[in-house]
Structures are given as C-alpha cells and as structure tokens.
C-alpha cells in the first residue's frame, strides 16, 4: 500500500497530464455545449495540477482561480444565454472533420517519429531538477510567489504594464461589442 502511494506521488505529473488530455478529448467530443464546458473545466483543473507537480505553486493556484473561477463561469453564462433554443440541433462536427482529424493525427505521428530518439531513447536527458547554481538569489523552490513577483515586477515590468493596457482595451471593447443597439 505504501509502495503504491509512493508510486502515485512520483508520477503525479503524468497522472495529471493524462487526465488533462482526457478532459480535452471530452471537450472536443461532447455533443452539447454544457458537456464541453465541463470537459474544459476538468482539463483546466488538471493542468493546474500539472503546474503544482512542476513546483509552480503560485501559477497553479492562479490557474484554478482564473480558469475555474472566472473563465468557466463566463463560458457557462454565455452558453446559458445562447444555447437555450434547440432549433439548431443539426450536425455538431464540420464536414471536413475526417480530413482534419487525419491531418492532426499525421502531424502527431510525424512529430513523435522525428523526435522519437530524443524523447524515448536512452539518451534522453536527466530528470527535471532545479539547478541551484542557476537559481541563486531566487529561491524558486521555497518561495515561489516571491520569486515570480520579482520576475514580474523587476525584469518584466514593461510587458506587465502593456498587459494592463490590453486588459483595459479588452474591457472597453467587450462592453462596446456586447451592448444593445439602443442605449
């Protein structure tokens, strides 16, 4: 039993990653939009788990807050507004679905074939561990939020400010786009 738990603890990233893939497949395969949103929520929560397994704690929690708390709720609101009428039952998938799936599967096979040796071969590089000499001064492993804030507000202050302007423009744009004709 303890051995089992230890195995799970060591393979946390793989478990979360495979569950995220399952959620993504549910999302693109579901017939109704509500089920797609639920699959999206499942995928986002598992990606947050992947972030936590990669020891990006702040980003994992931010992922849960932003996606599960904000974006999924927005999507659910719009589904509720838009998908109430059932008159557009129709076909769910595009006409070119078969070719699109074939093309994407071909791309995946090509990628895995080209990088097969690098990914699965014996020469694949060492495990992803923090190299302490590179993280000097930024104690990434122990105080993740502090380290991220130093990166965000010291090294990347200009992109951060640009992002705030983008958010403002998006806010105004969304209001303008979604408001009714007569004010």
């Amino acid at each position: 039993m303890e051995h089992f738990i230890e195995t799970i603890g060591r393979n946390m990233f793989a478990i979360f990653g495979v569950l995220a893939l399952v959620g993504a497949l549910l999302m693109i395969g579901a017939r109704s939009a509500i089920h797609s949103v639920l699959g999206f929520l499942f995928a986002m929560l598992n990606i947050a788990g992947c972030f936590l397994a990669l020891e990006a704690e702040f980003l994992g929690v931010a992922q849960i807050l932003v996606y599960a708390g904000g974006i999924v709720v927005l999507f659910l609101f719009v589904v509720m507004l838009v998908e109430m009428s059932k008159k557009h039952e129709g076909e769910v998938f595009q006409l070119q679905s078969r070719y699109a799936v074939l093309a994407v599967a071909g791309g995946v096979a090509l990628f895995l074939g080209v990088f097969r040796k690098a990914i699965f071969g014996a020469s694949s590089p060492e495990a992803l561990v923090l190299r302490p000499e590179l993280a000097k001064g930024l104690d990434v492993a122990h105080q993740n939020a502090q380290a991220v804030s130093r990166g965000l507000f010291a090294d990347y202050l200009l992109p951060f400010e640009i992002l705030s302007v983008i958010l403002l423009v998006a806010l105004v744009g969304a209001v303008v786009l979604a408001k009714t004709e007569r004010v």
Binding site: A56, F58, L59, A62, L130, R131, P132, E133, L134, A135, L138, V140, N144, A147, V148, R150, G151, L152, D155, Y156, P159
Partner: peptide, 10 residues
C-alpha cells in the same frame, strides 16, 4: 532554473 518563464506564463 530561472523564474522568467513563470512570470511570462502569468
């Protein structure tokens, strides 16, 4: 081992 990637992900 740098934190830039995490800042950019945010």
């Amino acid at each position: 081992g740098s934190v830039s990637g995490q800042a950019f992900a945010l």
